[in-house]
Design a binder for these strands. Structure first.
Lengths: 342, 342
DNA sequence: GTTTACAATGTAAGCGTTTACATTTTTTTT
DNA sequence: AAAAAAAATGTAAACGCTTACATTGTAAAC
C-alpha cells in the first residue's frame, strides 16, 4: 500500500503565499527581467522556505527547453566510455546542460524504447550505436532535435557524424608491423556486427594485401571487444605451430586479456610475441610492458560532439549537412612491440 | 532564425488516423489489457508508420511513473565511478529503468539546481555527495521519492544509506603496516571536506594510536584524491631525512601518481618504500608491482543501491528506517607492500 | 490634471498525456 | 428476444508549467 504521498508543492502554492499570480512566480524562476529585484527576492525567499522546486516535466511540456542531452551508448563500462562521458559531461555542464545516459545492447527495439523515453525530455541526442541498420532507427528521432551520431556517416542533414578513423588506424598498425619485419601476423577482430570492428578489420587486411608480399601469413581470429575474449583466444594465438610474431588486437581491452594469459603462462611480451592494440585507454601505459596502441582522443570526441549539439540547439537543428568530423589515430609506441630480429 | 519545427506527432494524430479516441491509443501504449489484440496491433502499426513516440514529459506529468532514477555523483570520471555506474545501470535496466546521470562538484547550489531538474522526472534518487551539510540539501528532495544516499548515514526514514567502511578499512591498513614491522609511516589523506577521506584518516590514526607504540612516527600529508596529488606529494614522502618505510594513500588514484613519480626517478616499490592504497580500482592489479589495497565491491554497491530504490518505488517510499548497508573492505595483498626487514 | 508611455502583474490557453467515470457495443444468460 | 453482464471505447478533467495577450499601476510629458 502506498503511503499518502503529500502533494508536491506547486507554483500555485507559492503564488498564493506570495499573493501574486503564478505568472509572476514563473517569471522569477525563468529569470525574466520583467519582475523587479525586490519582488524576485521576496518570492525566492518564500519558495525556498516552502521547498518549492519547479517540476521539470511540466516545464518541458509547457514549451521550455529542458537543457538535457540524451546519450545512448553501447555500454557504460570501462575506461573507454568513461572517458567519452567525461568529455561529454564536462562540456554539457559548461553550458548548464545535463546528460541523460543510458546504454543499449545491440537491440533495435530497445533503442526505440529509449528514444521514446527521451522524447520530450532531451533537447538533443548523442548516439553511439555501432550497429548496422542504425539509419532506419534514426528516423524515429523526434523532428527538430539535433543528433550527433558517433561512428556512422549519414546523409540526413539533421544528423552530424563523428568518426574514428578506424580504417586508417588499423591500416597504419598493419603497415608498421610489416615495416618492422613481421611476416607472421595475427589479427583479432571485434564482433562482426560492430561497425568499428569491421572497419578496423578491413583497414588491417587492406594494408596486408597492399604492402605485404607473398610470404606474409595472416591469421584472423574473431573476438568480441571484451577482455575475456583476448584471454580465450590466447592459446590459439600462441600455439606452437606456425606461431605469429606479432598480434593486433582491435581494441585494448582484448589485449589486456591477452596480457593476463601470457603472464599466467609465464610467457613474455614482446619477446614471445609483439602486441599492438587500439584505443589507448588509460591503463595501456600502465601495463608491463606498456601497450603499443593506436590512440585517438576519445575525451575530445565526447566534448566536441556535445559542443556541436549545443550549437545546433541554440542555432538551428536542421542545418545544411556538414561533413563528419574524423578523429585521426596515431601510433603510440611502448614496450609491447619490437621489430622482428632475424 | 529557427526553422519551422514541424509539430511533433501526438496521440491525437494517431487517434484520428485510427478512428479511435486518444484513450484507446494511450491504453495501447501502456499495455492496458482492456484493448483487444486486434485493435492493439492496428494502432501500433499506424503509430509506427506515423513515427509516433509518446512524449515522456507529458506522460510523467499526467501521473505516470517515468522509470528513471536520478543519479548525482561527484564526478563521472575514472574507473571508480565507471564501476559504480555499471552496477547501477545494469540493475536499473533489468527493471526497465534508466539513469539520469549528472555530476556536481562540491557546490551546494548546483546540487539544488540539479535536484530541481530531476524533480518531476526521476522516480527516485541515488546521491553520492561526500560533503558536509548534505543533510540540509536533502530536505529539498521531492516528497514521496525514495533516495539512496552513499557515504552518509541519515535518520530520515525517507532515505537509506550505503556506506563504505572507511574507518575500519583504514584501521586495518594501518594495523597491517604495524604488524609487518613498519614504524615510520606516511598517511596521505584526501580533501578535508570529503567525508570518505576524513573517515579514512580517522581510522588510520586511531589504529596508530591504539596499536602503535611510542616509537611510531606518523607523517600526515594532505592530498585530494586525484592522481596528480600522489605525484606532487612524492618528493615530500621520499625526502632523505627520516623517510617512512611505508605509505598509505587514501585512494588508489593517488597511489598511481606516486608510482609514476617513483618510476621516473628510478626508485623502486616496494624496495624503497611499501605502498598501500584504497578502493582496488581495476588497474590496481595491473600495476608493476601490483598495488596492495583495501578492496570493497563498488559495482555491487551501485547495484544494491538501485535495487533498494526500485523496491521502494514499487513498495512504499516512506518506510520505517533501515540501518545502513555497510560495505566491508578487505586487504588485497599484492607486490607493493613488504614487511619491514630489520 | 490629463494624457501618454512604460513597468508590473494577471488571465487563460495551451503543452501531450493518463485515467476515473460514463457510455456504447457485444456477448452471455434466461 | 429481452435482460444482464462483460468488454470495448469514449469523454473530460487533471498534471504543473510557460507565455501571448490583456489589464492595471505608476511615472513622465504635456
Amino acid at each position: 500500500m502506498k503511503p499518502s504521498q503529500s502533494r508536491q508543492v506547486t507554483i500555485f502554492d507559492v503564488a498564493e503565499k506570495a499573493k501574486v499570480s503564478i505568472a509572476t512566480v514563473s517569471r522569477v524562476f525563468n529569470n525574466n527581467p520583467l519582475v523587479p529585484e525586490k519582488t524576485r527576492k521576496r518570492i525566492l525567499a518564500i519558495a525556498e522556505q516552502m521547498k518549492y522546486l519547479p517540476n521539470s516535466s511540466a516545464r518541458t511540456l509547457a514549451g521550455n527547453q529542458n537543457k538535457t542531452i540524451g546519450v545512448i551508448l553501447p555500454v557504460i563500462y570501462g575506461i573507454f566510455f568513461s572517458d567519452f562521458l567525461y568529455g561529454a559531461e564536462t562540456r554539457a555542464r559548461e553550458s548548464g546542460y545535463h546528460l541523460l545516459v543510458t546504454s543499449v545492447q545491440n537491440n533495435d527495439s530497445e533503442l526505440l524504447t529509449l528514444l521514446g523515453k527521451m522524447n520530450g525530455v532531451a533537447d538533443g541526442f548523442l548516439i553511439y550505436y555501432p550497429q548496422p541498420g542504425i539509419e532506419k532507427l534514426l528516423n524515429h528521432i523526434p523532428q527538430g532535435k539535433p543528433a550527433a551520431i558517433i561512428g556512422k556517416e549519414l546523409k540526413d542533414s539533421r544528423f552530424f557524424s563523428f568518426l574514428i578513423d578506424n580504417f586508417n588506424g588499423a591500416y597504419q598498425a598493419a603497415s608498421y608491423m610489416l615495416n618492422q619485419g613481421h611476416r607472421k601476423i595475427t589479427l583479432v577482430t571485434g564482433e562482426k556486427k560492430n561497425l568499428d570492428a569491421e572497419q578496423r578489420k578491413l583497414g588491417f587486411k587492406k594494408a596486408i594485401s597492399d604492402l605485404g608480399g607473398e610470404e606474409v601469413k595472416l591469421q584472423v581470429l574473431e573476438g568480441n571487444f571484451k577482455q575475456n575474449s583476448g584471454y580465450e583466444l590466447a592459446p590459439e594465438i600462441m600455439r606452437e605451430k606456425n606461431r605469429s610474431t606479432a598480434v593486433f588486437f582491435s581494441n585494448d581491452g582484448m589485449a589486456l586479456g591477452f596480457y593476463e594469459w601470457m603472464s599466467e603462462k609465464g610467457m613474455k611480451i614482446p619477446e614471445d610475441i609483439s602486441v599492438i592494440g587500439f584505443d589507448d585507454i588509460e591503463w595501456a601505459a600502465l601495463l608491463q610492458p606498456g601497450l603499443t596502441t593506436m590512440k585517438f582522443d576519445i575525451v575530445r570526441m565526447g566534448r566536441d560532439s556535445v559542443s556541436e549539439i549545443l550549437k545546433r540547439i541554440a542555432d538551428a537543428p536542421d542545418q545544411t549537412p556538414v561533413s563528419p568530423v574524423v578523429y585521426q589515430t596515431r601510433l603510440v609506441q611502448r614496450g609491447s612491440f619490437i621489430p622482428l630480429r632475424n
